[in-house]
Each structure stands twice: as C-alpha cells, then as structure tokens.
Simulated assay, not measured.
Amino acid sequence: MRAHDPTGRNGVRIGPREFDFARQIAVMAIVNRTPDSFYDQGRTDALDLAVAAAEEAIVEGADWIDIGGAKFAPGPAVPVQDEIDRVVPVVEALRGAGVVLSVDTFQPGVARAALAAGAHVINDTTGIHDPAMADVVAEAGAAIVITHSKAAPRTAYPSPTYDDVVDEVVAFLRDRIALAEARGVASDRIIVDPGHDLNKHTLDSLELTRRLDEVVALGHPTLVALSNKDFVGESLGRRDRHQRVEGSIAAAVYAVTRGARIVRVHNVRETVDAMRMIEAIEGWREPAYLEHNR
C-alpha cells in the first residue's frame, strides 16, 4: 500500500485534530443514545453510560466520537427536541476532550443545536436528504459526512437494485458534494461514506469494498462504516452482531488498503490496534517501543 493522501491534501484539520491521511487512519467510535440501536440495543441510552462509553473509547485510542440519537433503520419518527435532548448533553460533556465530535443526524435542527454545543462534524447517513442540512453546516463552518443511501429517513426500502452499485454510489456522492459546495460548505470540510449495507444487499456491500478506490477517487476523505454489519455476518455464516468482530476488522483493513482513512467502529481497542499495526508496517508510525533482540 503506497503512502499517499487519498484526499490530495497534505493535512486535514477536523475539530481539534490534524490528520495526515498520507500516514494516518482515524478511528471513529460509535456512541448511541437510543433504546433500539443496531449493536448495543440501548446499552448506552442513559446519559452517564453514553459519556462513560465515550471516555472509555478515548482511553482505548479513538480519535473521534460519533454520537447518535436516532438510528437509520425504519421506525417511528423521533421528535427533533427528543433527539436534541439525547445528543447535546453528550457533546457538552465531551467538549474539550481533544477528540473530534460528530453527531449522526439527518435533522437540520438537531445539527444546529449540536454544532452550537461544540460538535465539529455532522454525519448525515441520508446524504443530505434535506438540503437545509448543508446550510446549517456551512453557516457553522463545520464538516459533514455525506453517506449514500436510497431511502427517505426512517423508511423501508425493500429489495434495492443497482445496475452497477459502485457507479451509482459514486454518481450520488458526486451530486451531493456539488450540492453541499453550492450551498457554501467548503470542499475541505466534506467526507464521503459509500454506506455499506444502507439500502444494499450483501453482494453490493462486498462490491463496494472491493472497488472502494473508485469512491476514494472523488478526492475527499473516505469513511467506512463496516462494523458488525449484516454483510459481514452473512459472508461468514449467519454470525450474529456480537460474533462479527474479526470479520469487521478484516473488512476495515482491506478498506484501508483501498484508500479509506476513517473507520467507524463499535470495537474500539481491537480496531485501533489493527489500524496502528498497518501504520507501523507502512512506516507511517514508529513502534511504541523497541526491545526485541536488543
């Protein structure tokens, strides 16, 4: 894997962190304040538990905390104020922790409140379904993750089909990047995510992983959210969400070899070790210490 910055830039500042994506992989830890989250099923729904989980992730080496108050999957709408009440106290508690803080939301009102509270990034898994989201991000001078998905927020999209999933994802992201820039979001504030498993079958997600370099070629930092997803379980043999750690890390490592530079994960310590090992092998990072055969 040759050392290069897939964004075409020497360094990217996101919140309090400066990332050199020619030599660095950012690990984003997931902290959800939802009673029905995909992986933890409400384990961090309470404020104190959410903050404690974030602090533990930081100790384990996370560069970034992604805070969610409403899951992507279909379900009843979460009122904007309820979502604000879930995510803003976590942002406030972690402000000044020295890591990037993002909020996973598709609601411009939630984004405005979160950015005012100290968040640095909005992670919009609906790919700016509401163009007002771009306005909010632009006004704050914040960054945005633009993710590919087909469905309207919180709605089902059964049996999605693609002529060529990678071509369609790239075209969608290119269009949404143009929308964000037209509404004032700076180009260096845009991150892209191909949206593994979001309105996609397992074969689609595998194809996206194999051809991730075509997404990277858009010229923006590429985030992959692979952690414990169904395409990992189905690839390995009906593994439930708590038996997918190894497969998730393998997928993340492969994605990094194709140019991903931000990985969104549940299992922080294990993923941090895998990413730091890549950096050491590539010569991007010095070993923590040198004693063997000294």
Rank of each mutant, 00 (worst) to 15 (best):
V253C: 05
R13A: 14
P194H: 09
G11Y: 11
S187K: 06
A180N: 09
R23M: 02
I67S: 00
V245I: 15
V51H: 08
A143Y: 05
P153E: 08
E270K: 07
T161M: 02
H148E: 01
K229D: 10
V224P: 12
A62P: 08
A260K: 04
A182V: 04
H266M: 01
G219L: 06
A186S: 15
D188S: 10
R264M: 11
A260V: 11
D85N: 14
R261I: 09
L115P: 01
L203F: 11
H4V: 11
A260F: 03
A217D: 11
P35H: 04
P108L: 14
V185H: 06
R285Q: 12
I30D: 02
R23L: 00
N199D: 15
N228G: 07
A280N: 14
R189F: 06
I190K: 09
M1P: 13
A117D: 02
V136H: 10
A26Q: 12
D135Q: 14
I128H: 03
P194D: 08
D45E: 09
E207H: 02
I122Y: 01
E168H: 01
F21W: 03
I278K: 02
V87D: 03
E234Q: 15
A93W: 07
T222D: 06
A134V: 11
A119T: 00
V31G: 05
Q81F: 03
L94C: 08
W284F: 07
A62T: 08
A280Q: 15
R211F: 06
V59G: 05
H129D: 09
H148Y: 06
V31N: 05
D66N: 00
G247W: 01
R244V: 05
L206F: 09
A29T: 10
L212P: 03
H201V: 05
V90L: 07
L218P: 04
I25W: 03
D240L: 14
A274Q: 01
P108A: 13
G283S: 12
E139G: 14
A255N: 12
A140W: 07
A225I: 06
E279C: 06
E234G: 02
E168L: 00
I249D: 00
I144K: 00
V170T: 13
R23Y: 04
K150A: 10
I30A: 04
R276Q: 15
A97E: 05
T155E: 13
V245H: 00
G98T: 06
F231N: 08
R43E: 06
A3Y: 08
L236Q: 02
V80P: 00
